[in-house]
Simulated assay, not measured.
Amino acid sequence: MSKAEYIFNKINKTLEWFIIIIFALLVLDVLFQVISRYLLGTSFTWTEEFARFSLIWMTIIGAAYLNAKKEHLSMDFLYQKLSIKNKRKASIIIEIFIFLFALIIMVIGGFNLVYTTLHLNQLSGTLRIPLGYVYAILPLSGILIMYFSIYHISNFYSNKNIV
């Protein structure tokens, strides 16, 4: 196993555990909300906001994880009709577009969003945490997606069997 593969696998394993932990916290949070509402007769407002933020983080990190595994949603009817050589070219072009999207929208736009919300001292409604911390998952996930795109492109060039 090469060093690049080792790092790739380590990042993926870390993302798996991170997503599992966020999901477990989300389930516990919603369970606590249901129990407190029906058994204790009181409702805690912070549980809804925590669930929303957890879902945001889980979804955006999940997108990076699926990009690494190449299991994101795609329509590949035309792609399957291509020759091996053209599939490789199309795959590289797709990865370049994914890289550019992650760079422009997620990293640059995400850093701008984080900076703006932190600079304006915007706090979440109930938990009173800076929204920039919540939005920080966007550029982080974008950086991961960019890394995975570079990794996939390098595999297209180094291993002729990968399509």
Rank of each mutant, 00 (worst) to 15 (best):
M1Y: 14
K3D: 09
K3H: 10
A4K: 15
Y6F: 09
I7M: 06
F8A: 13
F8P: 07
N9Q: 13
N9Y: 12
N9H: 11
I11Y: 02
N12R: 12
K13D: 08
L15Q: 06
L15T: 05
W17L: 14
F18K: 09
I19T: 01
I19K: 04
I19M: 11
I19L: 06
I20R: 15
A24M: 08
L26A: 08
V27Y: 00
D29L: 13
D29Q: 11
V30N: 06
V30E: 04
L31N: 06
F32K: 15
F32T: 15
I35K: 11
S36M: 12
R37G: 05
Y38M: 09
L40G: 09
G41E: 10
T42H: 12
S43H: 07
F44P: 05
F44H: 13
E48G: 11
E48M: 09
F50P: 10
A51S: 13
A51H: 06
R52S: 07
R52M: 03
I56V: 14
W57Y: 01
T59P: 00
I60M: 00
I60Y: 03
G62C: 01
G62Y: 02
G62T: 00
L66T: 12
A68F: 06
A68R: 08
K69E: 06
K70R: 13
K70V: 10
K70P: 00
E71Y: 07
H72Y: 00
M75D: 15
D76L: 03
Y79E: 07
Y79N: 04
Q80H: 14
S83Y: 02
I84N: 15
N86L: 01
K87M: 03
K87E: 05
R88M: 09
K89H: 10
A90Q: 13
A90W: 07
I94Q: 04
E95V: 02
E95P: 05
F97W: 08
I98C: 05
I98Y: 01
F99D: 08
F99I: 02
F99H: 10
L100E: 10
F101W: 13
L103S: 03
L103P: 02
I104G: 05
V107P: 00
V107G: 00
I108V: 07
I108G: 01
G110S: 04
G110Q: 05
N112L: 15
N112M: 09
N112T: 05
V114D: 01
Y115Q: 04
T116Q: 12
T116V: 11
L118R: 01
H119R: 14
H119M: 01
H119D: 01
N121D: 11
N121H: 13
L123M: 15
S124A: 07
G125F: 05
G125A: 06
T126F: 09
L127P: 01
R128Y: 03
R128K: 14
I129P: 01
I129M: 02
Y133W: 05
V134F: 08
I137S: 03
L138N: 13
L140F: 09
L140T: 13
L140N: 08
S141F: 05
S141C: 10
I143H: 07
I143V: 00
I145V: 02
Y147E: 04
S149P: 00
S149A: 07
I150R: 03
Y151F: 04
Y151K: 08
I153R: 11
S154V: 15
S154Y: 15
F156P: 04
F156V: 11
F156W: 12
Y157E: 12
Y157N: 03
N159H: 14
N159Q: 06
N159D: 15
K160C: 03
K160Q: 10
I162A: 02
I162R: 13
V163Q: 10
V163T: 14
V163W: 07
